[in-house]
Each structure stands twice: as structure tokens, then as C-alpha cells.
Design a protein around this nucleic acid. Structure first.
Lengths: 133, 133
DNA sequence: TTCAATACGGATAAATTTATCCCTGTAGTT
DNA sequence: AACTACAGGGATAAATTTATCCGTATTGAA
């Protein structure tokens, strides 16, 4: 049981949204759920780079934060279906725009993220570009 | 000099945008710069919860990723001004929408982030709500 | 009877991000 | 002469997030 030590910022809308959607896979989860991919196993297949564990954690956080909810069917083997709450639905237009922005600028972004003007592998504050690594 | 060990995801637009804007203060920095707060000292005053150090790091990353650029005036004491690139400008409508969404739902969000259905201080996967801590 | 499919989560290690503290250098002000 | 404002960054510690590994339980199929 991890106990948080630093205070959570909640001054403005930007603070608040960061708290609820800035997990590694949260926007992906919201996106796929909005597309009708509702079961945990399916979500996992759609996000193969993520481990099952972290998806569970982030789904739980999205649920606790009120962006998604789930139906647990009382049967064996277990069956669970996630869906967006009204609050979750209300954020989807923005998340879709984020995805479109990323797609639209993907060529540039891939370039700078990977082997941009400096090597992203270094946490780098070097002012010498292109030669950091 | 930190060397990254896990691969950076870059499959889709959502991956890409996460890489460039999901730092703790990046959306705040973009917002204030878009509002004409251009000098490092001013940015710092507008984001007092952040340390000078991390703002420098994230400004550098935004710069390396091509969302902001800066003018360094050759004078003493030093003077630097940041501004949005075209790419940076193109993302501002979405960041503004994020902030508005957070503001609009701030009552709910503050509640669930702080003392929501579970206590956020615990990294919590407990199914027992409201009593975790 | 052994195995796959289903969903969930404990325990711990590793990776990454952020915080803390301190130092550089110059021009102007008190 | 000492002090301030200015922008930047090194070194390291702390905090947080994510990865890895393993175990629970039930039903139906091979």
C-alpha cells in the first residue's frame, strides 16, 4: 500500500485533467472503450505493448475517477464489460482530436521522438545537439 | 546521463502525443506561452508549484520536440523569450479544450482525486471503497 | 485429468520522472 | 563591496509509475 507523499495539484483545469488522463495507457483505454471494445481481454489484445497488470490498474483508476464503469456478469468464466460514463463520453471528442493531431503530425513526431535534434535516450540537458549520445 | 531502457511507443497518434505533452508541466507551459508569458522567470511565477529545474527540463523537451522555440538576447543580465512554433500553435485549441473540460468538471474531479470513492493516497487496488486508508 | 479461457490482484524489482541542493557568470543597485 | 536579478545546468535523492512474476478461482473442452 503505497502512500503518496507529494500533494496533488488541483489548482486549475489543466491540473485536474492531468490527474485523470495522464497515465501511460489511459487515453488508449478510453479510446478503445469508446469504440465498443469493452472486455478486458479485448482491450489487452488491442494494446499488446501494455501488460495486463498495468491495464487493470489504469482501468481501476479511470473507474474510480468516474470516467468509465463496468458491468460484472455473474457467471463462469467471468465476464466484465466496461463502458464510458457520461463524463467519459464528454471527454472523447478531445481525446479523438489529440489522436488526430498525433496522426496528422506523425512524421515529424516520430522523427523528433526517436532520433531528433538530440538523442532522446539521454535525459539530456546538453546544449550540444546531435552528439549527446 | 540517463540511458533509456524501454522502447518508446510510437504506433499511433495517441502514443505520439503522449510522448510530447504528458510531462507534469508541459501543458501548463504551452498554455502560458500561448498567453504571451514568454520569459522563464515569468513562467516560473505563474507555475509556483513547479521547481525551476523541472520547468527548464520540460521547456527543453518542448523545444526539442518542436512545439516551442526561443529567442536568446545577447545581453546582461540574460534575457530569453519563448514562443510557440506553428506546430505548437496548432495544438493549443486542444489544450484549451482540455483545460475547459477540467474547469467545467472541477467539482467532480476535485472530489474524486482527493477523497473520492477510494483514497488516492493509496496506490490501491482494493475493492473496498471509502475505507482503504 | 490436465489444460485453456476468463478476470483479478499481491509482492517486488526496475525504470522513469521529479525534487532538492548547489554552483556559474555579468550588470546594475544600494 | 556586497547583493539582486537573470538564465542555465550538474549531481544526487526521492517519489512515482510501470514491469515482471506468480497465484486465485471456475467452467468447459480435449
Amino acid at each position: 500500500m503505497y502512500e503518496r507523499k507529494l500533494p496533488i495539484q488541483e489548482e486549475c483545469g489543466l491540473d485536474l485533467i492531468r490527474e485523470v488522463v495522464f497515465g501511460k495507457w489511459k487515453i488508449h483505454l478510453l479510446y478503445y472503450i469508446s469504440q465498443g471494445i469493452s472486455r478486458p481481454g479485448q482491450l489487452q489484445k488491442n494494446i499488446p505493448e501494455a501488460t495486463r497488470r498495468v491495464l487493470n490498474i489504469q482501468l481501476k483508476q479511470l473507474e474510480d475517477d468516474g470516467l468509465v464503469a463496468k458491468t460484472v456478469y455473474d457467471q463462469q468464466p467471468p465476464k466484465v464489460e466496461y463502458y464510458l460514463t457520461d463524463l467519459g463520453k464528454s471527454i472523447m471528442p478531445i481525446i479523438n482530436e489529440l489522436g488526430q493531431w498525433g496522426d496528422h503530425n506523425s512524421e515529424h513526431l516520430r522523427r523528433v521522438i526517436k532520433n531528433g535534434w538530440y538523442c532522446r535516450r539521454c535525459n539530456t540537458l546538453t546544449t550540444i545537439k546531435r552528439t549527446a549520445c
